[in-house]
Design a protein around this nucleic acid. Structure first.
Lengths: 249, 249
DNA sequence: GGAATTCCCGCATAAAAACGCAGAAACCGG
DNA sequence: CCGGTTTCTGCGTTTTTATGCGGGAATTCC
């Protein structure tokens, strides 16, 4: 069999079945694994397939991403994400909500980190999926088209079954008196469950949202362990929260 | 034999068999390999064949290099999607697998359709989310990065709790003897559960995949209700399936 | 953390291509 | 018919290409 023929055949198989294993191909075509590997290599260089350990994948399926429009206050959120990442170590189970701050966190995860991330937010999950070393657990249920997150009793039940090491909450509003508040009833139910299940609860919030209130209460300050903002820890804005027993970073 | 004659003969052979080997040709015509090589060279320069190491290929053969970004066989999948959509009516619960054919189905859903769609495939879910009137239920569990679908016992358990009206399966390989087969163990588990739960099972497959086999068995033909391809229902390729009791469209 | 794959590198080999050359055949204008 | 020219073809040598093999590095899986 001619080289080009072989490559055409491989390409055909990849496009048909979305993935091929070099081990299977080489028995099928009756050539050595090296040859298959070299073929896949060439096809990959021409951009016709995506080479992976043990075989190759079709190009068509592997470029899912969410339309990201300009993120508000990206710099601040970046700096929040960095502080949050410092709390994560290898092997942890990390539960996260949705929201642009969490997105920033997801995007900034160091590539060598090995951990398990759990979320019901579609955009966030997509970011997690791009990372090579993390396991991704998706919480299923009905999708709320507004917030692009799964909501409902199944999702809540699933969260309650878990005991993640740490939970990162994108925060909509936080206030000394009313604690964490939000404006979407279903999302609030979810966050409540997340707080209840997690060993440690960390709120991520840009300074702008500090001392603001939304209609629906998530939890009181006593139930969160840490508040991360882009501010320095000794910023006067944070002082009342420290006094209320919340760690800040 | 004259040069022109020889070249005409070679060209004829190429168009007939899509390929020629120079070694064979030279014994056939009884000239030296050099001569054959020179002929092929000329024909290649005139663009009539594609010269490769060891022989030459027909132009049509090589031309089947696919668009790198686009979906393979999109037209066929479009037409399959249309046939599948005809089976969906308002108020239905529709369970779907993943795959590019299902993606096409998701993209082509008429905007006024009101139904509930259930899936564990991230790319497919993203498409569903764009539609204004459909409810989207996401099956949660661990995400398989290969297939971008949730897999695992939780996902299977969730599917078994449901009784969807119809289930659309993207098909990897279908064959009279072996039924539906696939190449990813976890995905197969999922598909088995989907088939078991659903009132009606519809397989979507481009004609190219008909009569092909993959390593892992999903189910026999008796378990599926309908097979949708881009072919006409009276195509001879489909006849054995009809005889096996599968409806086709 | 250890076993099993898979990958990567260099080498060996055989097949095919390229190259130069020379002889044979065809062509061609007288 | 004949010498000169061009074209074609085959041969020997050198290069290039394709492929398989072995061993060590890297990766994945349990």
């Amino acid at each position: 069999m001619l080289k080009k023929e072989r490559q055409a055949y491989i390409l055909h198989q990849v496009n048909l079945h979305n993935r091929v294993l070099s081990s299977l191909l080489c028995t099928e075509i009756n050539v050595s694994e090296d040859t298959i590997r070299r073929d896949l290599q060439e096809l990959a260089e021409e951009g016709k397939v995506i080479k992976v350990h043990g075989g190759a994948l079709s190009h068509s399926f592997n470029q899912v991403s969410f339309p990201v429009n300009g993120v508000y206050s990206q710099n601040q959120k970046q700096s929040i994400a960095q502080k949050a990442i410092a709390l994560i170590s290898n092997g942890m189970f990390v539960l996260t909500s949705g929201g642009t701050t969490i997105m920033e966190l997801a995007r900034s995860l160091p590539p060598q980190l090995k951990a398990t991330f759990i979320s019901g937010s579609i955009p966030v999950i997509l970011e997690y999926m791009h990372h090579p070393n993390i396991e991704v657990i998706l919480i299923g249920d009905k999708i709320s088209k507004n917030s692009k997150i799964t909501v409902g009793s199944d999702a809540i039940a699933k969260i309650k079954q878990m005991k993640p090491d740490i939970c990162f909450l994108g925060t909509n509003a936080i206030d000394i008196e009313h604690g964490i508040t939000d404006n979407d009833w279903e999302v609030v139910q979810l966050k409540k469950a997340m707080i209840e299940s997690s060993k440690k609860v960390v709120c991520l919030s840009i300074a702008e949202k500090i001392n603001s209130v939304q209609p629906i209460r998530v939890c009181g300050l006593s139930e969160i362990d840490m508040l991360i903002t882009e501010l320095e820890a000794d910023d006067p804005l944070l002082k009342p929260y420290i006094e209320a027993g919340v760690k800040v970073a």
